[in-house]
Simulated assay, not measured.
Amino acid sequence: MSIGAPDPASFQPMMDAFAMASPAAAVEIVLPAFTFGPACTQIARIIYMNQCNPGQIMMVGAYWLQLAEKYIKAGLDLGDKVDAFDAESWEGDDCDAFTDQSGKVRAQLFAIGAFAVEVGMGLFTIAALLAVMVTAYAALATVLMGMALVYWPLQAFPLTAGAAVAVRTAAMTVAATGLGVLQSLDAALKTLGNTLAAFIGGGMVGSWATLAVSGNVVNPLDLVGPTAFNMANGFAQLALRNAAAPSAGKHVAPGLNHLFVGGQGAYNLGLNLNDRAQDGAVDGKNDPRATYGIDPGNLDFIPNVETSDGKPEPPYTFEKPDWAKDPAPSWSGS
């Protein structure tokens, strides 16, 4: 049985393209933000707040769908094996207990498979809209950057000052129109994101209930540590991100935050180019993520890494404490 899960590798070209387009837009919008005023300031904020790689999100979604396919196939194969038993060669209490337990395991496999489909499709849905957003703001930033580069030489000389004013007027019109498009996309993304989060949250509750009814009870207290640890990390980085964002106000003059937007874009361009040069591998000599377990350009200053069992941790880093690690699932039915 197949649900038609796509090959994650097929999204590599898309991931490579957006790995350049998104941070490049953050670099390109800096000069227009200082040159053309409030609309470009708000565009810079939208670009900064929506730095992402839709291709990579789709690749992760494809992995979830492949995982779903494996669980669903495992459930079907288990059912085929149980149905193939000869009732005359094995019957009685042991047979009944085995059949009952097999049914519970199948229910768990199908529940996890269904939840994985839900997550995978949710990731594809949000990634599709993000792809439109990133393409739109990358094109807009490139156009505005070109107009800024034309404007500054023109306004430097009295004979071309009139042409500079025309370029500036045109640029502000383009920025205002483009801002309206980006704001509509941003609002749609927020609505879609909240809807998908609620949908996936409901699916998680439903899958937990199915597992519990099938004998695989998940103790919520076991998840308190991992959840608190990850939420603390996430909220800390979110607070730093929001503090570094350009102003959202229409009448606030551009500030130094624009320089951070451009600097972060250049930093990520460097990391992404390095990743591509290393064929996806992280080069510890050039990449602080490998050496220190941090990502300062993206405001991640917590030196935390995940290492395989028996593998030494990189210097100056630490692994999650045991209470912060997700417990291993139980398939015993007890």
Rank of each mutant, 00 (worst) to 15 (best):
D186K: 06
P329Q: 10
F235I: 04
A239K: 13
F199K: 15
L259P: 01
I294G: 13
A136Q: 04
L211H: 03
K250D: 11
Y63T: 03
P246D: 05
A176G: 05
F124S: 12
V305T: 09
Y48A: 02
V82D: 03
K320E: 03
A324D: 08
G234P: 07
P314G: 12
D7Q: 09
A266D: 04
N230M: 15
M59S: 12
A44F: 10
N286H: 13
P314R: 05
S2F: 05
A170D: 14
M15P: 09
V174P: 12
M133S: 12
L130S: 10
L154N: 05
G270V: 14
H258A: 01
V117H: 01
G297R: 06
A277D: 07
Q56I: 03
A253N: 05
L67V: 08
T191F: 06
L65R: 10
V82C: 06
V213Y: 10
V117E: 15
V224E: 02
G225T: 00
A324T: 11
R106D: 07
L273H: 00
A164Q: 04
V119A: 07
Q183F: 15
D279C: 12
Y48Q: 00
T169C: 02
R45N: 01
F36P: 01
Q101G: 15
N216C: 12
R106V: 07
T307L: 11
V167S: 14
D283K: 04
D100E: 12
P38R: 01
L223A: 06
G297N: 00
N298G: 09
V27Q: 11
A245P: 06
G225S: 00
M145C: 14
A248M: 05
P23Q: 03
V30I: 07
L130G: 09
M133Q: 15
M204Y: 13
M172Y: 12
T210M: 09
V181L: 10
F18Q: 01
K285C: 09
T210W: 06
G225D: 02
A139V: 14
G61A: 01
M204F: 14
D283E: 03
Q42N: 07
T160K: 00
A44H: 10
A97E: 15
G270F: 14
P254Q: 11
A243I: 00
R168K: 14
Y316K: 08
A228G: 03
P38G: 00
M121V: 15
A21L: 03
S332C: 14
S330Q: 10
